[in-house]
């Protein structure tokens, strides 16, 4: 009945560091790709992220993690999402994350993670491709 559904993404910036340039870059790139992007600002706790993801009924949570805490943050958010019955949400993100860690996190059910050199169009293509495989597209 309606046009194709908008992809809703929460761009989240966890941690204590005060840099959200990366998060803002990806948020505007997603907007320009036609996504509806919820941006919540700096210093988000995993609880805040998951709470917002559920209330906003997003399809995707994209976290920008530069602090080195990715090995705790990604699994923690994933666990909370699962716990609250929101395991259909794709958890992806980017930051300074070593290859090995990327592989480990993928094994834990976390989506693709994008390193510093990657272009925003890769992330956009990835989200679109993932979305096209969901039932409720």
């Amino acid at each position: 009945m309606s046009d194709e559904r908008k992809i809703r993404v929460l761009v989240a910036k966890p941690g204590l560091d005060g840099h959200d340039r990366g998060a803002k870059v990806i948020a505007s790139a997603f907007r320009d790709a036609g996504f509806e992007v919820v941006y919540t600002g700096l210093h988000q706790t995993p609880e805040m992220i998951v709470n917002a993801a559920i209330q906003e009924d997003v399809d995707v949570v994209a976290m920008s993690v530069l602090s080195g805490a990715h090995m705790t943050l990604f699994p923690r958010v994933k666990a909370l999402l699962d716990e609250l019955g929101a395991d259909h949400i794709l958890l992806t993100g980017g930051g300074i994350i070593p290859e090995n860690d990327v592989a480990d996190l993928e094994l834990e059910g976390i989506g693709r993670l994008f390193g510093p050199g990657t272009s925003t169009s890769d992330a956009i293509a990835y989200v679109k491709e993932w979305f096209s495989t969901t039932d409720d597209a």
């Binding site: 948020a27 907007r31 036609g34 919820v38 805040m48």
Partner: peptide
């Protein structure tokens, strides 16, 4: 232009 949106009101509601 894109049909997308940047929804930023939550930034003030943390």
């Amino acid at each position: 232009y894109s049909g997308g949106a940047l929804l930023g009101d939550r930034i003030r509601m943390n």
